[in-house]
Design a protein around this nucleic acid. Structure first.
Length: 636
RNA sequence: GAGACGUUAGCUCAGUGGUAGAGCAAUUCCCUUUUAAGGAAUGGGUCCAGGGUUCAAGUCCCUGACGUCUCACCA
């Protein structure tokens, strides 16, 4: 610090002064809390005795939290106390503290923004109507030795605060203290994972934990992290998937298992990649591909329903806080609340953001015949046309909109981009504007997912005929014809997956299963008996991104050995991500594994999808970061 | 890995080749129902680093570091 006395020094002095006054913040071991701040505010009228009785007769309550705002006014002061979830105003008066302890007021004057404080007192409402706590006694519970970047705040709107993306991730505690969005994302993730776990537990799956340290890291195509185990003096690898050990458990006649665990891949960092991430895999004996598809559908239905309905506060689209750094419109559309429909017909809630202006609106559509009228409490319809293309039995409508404009009551203009919108009548669907074409896409997880054959999809989207993709030479020629680079390709499967990625994936907005993957890129998936060169494997896609990967597992040990040997060949050719031989796994298969279906889902990306996060780092508490440069050693 | 943009006070950010700035936070003082409290005063800077141009560089040029965004590869 270059200040005369650094903030840290000043605060350490204050700490000593607090101790001298008998208010050592670090001496308290436990502080009894009667209520969370949120509960206090929600049940304010019940908890506060609003009768005219004196303050001695009011019920005394005890709460604690961090001081996040402080307004001193001579011999009285207002403060805001946050317990992380919510904040409540405190009113502190010198006279009242003096009655209790003559050192209390001097001690309070030493409290800074950022300190933790326990208080007792009674509830009251200030002149301006804010629910507050009238403090009788106070107990400093910690001292913040740093200046926390807490912004000012009113009615949930924040000024200043911590916005530096790098700092938010490096010092996540500051992010959690200063930014409500960070806390919401943390809760979102936790709840989604809980619901995933509940789903499998309810279905009789056994949750297991398998080794992170492995002699050979298999089950996926990726480079592992290496480390050394001293006791046996051997090199070990951090796992890159959960697959092989879970199937060894299936071989042990435990028919339904799942694991949610961290895996490690020695690769770069991006919006959607982190070297360690959380993977969900589950395996079910005697289940086939169709069973796995239904299971994925059920899982999404369960998680989305549970999170939207039970935790509506969190995942209701209107509640989502967008980390939208650009000035692009973000429109989120949610469906009609089926419990309390406000108007007949489809209904929209949407939040738009233009720069720093957040506009929340509701819009109802009422149709008579083919005519549509807009109803809204805060939007004035200006121009645009709409027509109904289709309507389903649940009240959902497919509506074609021209550019439609509204004026919000605050004066700002809103534009719904032209396109085809699906307005749902169920809470299960919502839409987000697609960043590539600004066309809203509704995700309805109540319906079965689309099922599309991989080769058929490629043919439809790229114009390349399936007959062109039966040998490497023709396939490369076809690839070249559509303008894709062919240098890196050395097998048919790779080309097919590249074509899928390039031509098909962007179109897979609604939940879709792509079925039938080439054998070369699926070394653990059962051969399709009816289609040489292809396996019984599917991947699920939502909003153009892969969300799951599933297949009927190979249970023929001879076949599995051949696949591994083929992979060893690829490895010899220089593919260091090819699958290694795993004799232990083969031995387990040779002991007999029933026909089994298995599926994997990247939890982080699932959370991204369900929370609208654009970056993996938003939903990862401590993403991988390059070490900070020390200012003392700029040479490093 | 490629491109664009950025790095100035604890935080958020201005800064036009000529003395380094604001708001918040901090320090001292006034104020017993304020709320982005208010009022008075004060302190706080390796302008990312290193070169270069110039009488003079936070500003212009070069190199590097780090970050953000976009694109490409891996889930």
């Amino acid at each position: 610090m270059s200040e005369d006395r650094s903030i840290r020094e000043i605060r350490l002095e204050k700490l000593q002064q607090l101790r001298d006054l008998g208010f050592d913040p670090y001496a308290t071991e436990k502080f009894k809390i009667d209520h969370s701040v949120k509960h206090l505010l929600n049940e304010f009228d019940q908890l506060a005795d609003l009768s005219e009785s004196g303050k001695e007769d009011k019920p005394i309550l005890s709460i604690a939290g961090r001081v996040v705002a402080l307004r001193e006014m001579g011999k009285a002061a207002f403060a805001h106390l946050s317990d992380g979830e919510d904040r409540i105003q405190l009113y502190i008066r010198k006279n009242d503290l003096d009655e209790w302890n003559e050192n209390a007021w001097p001690a309070f004057k030493l409290v800074d923004i950022g300190d933790h404080l326990g208080v007792t007192g009674h509830l009251f409402t200030t002149k301006t109507g804010e629910k507050s706590l009238y403090v009788h006694t106070l107990t400093p519970l910690s001292k913040a030795l740093h200046n926390l970047p807490l912004g000012k705040e009113k009615d949930g709107e924040q000024w200043y605060g911590l916005t530096d993306v790098d700092q938010r991730y490096r010092h996540r505690h500051l992010d959690l203290i200063c930014n409500h969005e960070a806390r919401e994302q943390l809760l979102n993730r936790s709840r989604i994972v809980s619901e995933v776990r509940r789903f499998f537990d309810n279905r009789g799956y056994l949750e297991v934990e398998t080794p992170l340290l492995q002699l050979e890291a298999g089950g996926a195509a990726a480079r592992p992290f290496l480390t050394h185990y001293n006791a046996y003096d051997i090199q070990v690898k951090l796992r890159i998937s959960l697959e092989l050990y879970l199937k060894r458990i299936i071989c042990g006649d435990v028919p339904k298992v799942y694991e949610i665990g961290r895996v490690f891949r020695n690769e770069g960092v991006s919006n959607r990649h982190n070297p360690e991430f959380t993977l969900l895999e589950w395996y079910e004996a005697y289940a086939n591909l169709e069973d796995m598809m239904e299971c994925v559908e059920d899982l999404f239905r369960h998680v989305v329903t549970a999170c939207v309905n039970v935790y509506g506060q969190v995942l209701t689209p209107g509640q989502r806080r967008m980390f939208n750094r650009s000035n692009r419109w973000m429109t989120i559309v949610s469906g009609l609340n089926p419990i309390e429909p406000r108007l007949p017909g489809a209904d929209l809630y949407f939040m738009s953001q233009l720069g720093s202006d957040v506009i929340e609106s509701t819009l109802s559509l009422l149709s008579t015949g083919n005519e549509i009228q807009f109803y809204s409490a805060n939007l004035e319809y200006l121009s645009g046309e709409a027509s109904i293309l289709d309507q389903d039995e649940r009240g959902g409508r497919l509506i074609c909109l021209s550019t439609t404009r509204f004026r919000h009551s605050d004066g700002l203009l809103l534009t719904l981009e032209p396109g085809i919108y699906t307005f749902m009548s169920s809470v299960y669907g919502w839409a987000s504007s697609n960043t590539s074409n600004d066309l809203a896409t509704i995700l309805d997880f109540t319906k079965p997912w689309h099922r599309v054959d991989l080769m058929t999809a490629i043919e439809e989207r790229s114009g390349i005929k399936q007959s062109e993709l039966t040998n490497l030479i023709d396939a490369k020629a076809a690839m070249k014809r559509v303008g894709l680079p062919t240098e890196k390709e050395n097998n048919l499967g790779g080309i097919i997956e590249k074509l899928l990625e390039h031509f098909v994936e962007p179109h897979l907005q609604e939940p879709t299963f792509i079925v039938g993957y080439p054998i070369e890129t699926s070394p653990l998936a059962k051969k399709d008996p009816n289609r040489p060169g292809f396996t019984r494997r599917f991947e699920g896609y939502v909003l153009g991104r892969e969300v799951c990967n599933a297949f009927s597992e190979i249970n023929d040990p001879i076949d599995q050995r051949e696949r591994f040997e083929q992979q060893m060949g690829e490895r010899d050719k220089g593919d260091d991500e090819a699958h290694p031989m795993d004799e232990q796994f083969i031995y387990a298969l040779e002991s007999g594994m029933p026909p089994t279906g298995g599926c994997g889902i990247g939890i982080d990306r699932l959370v991204m999808l369900l929370t609208g996060a654009e970056h993996l780092r938003e939903i990862l508490l401590f993403p991988m970061m390059r070490p900070e440069l020390s200012h003392d050693n700029p040479e490093d």
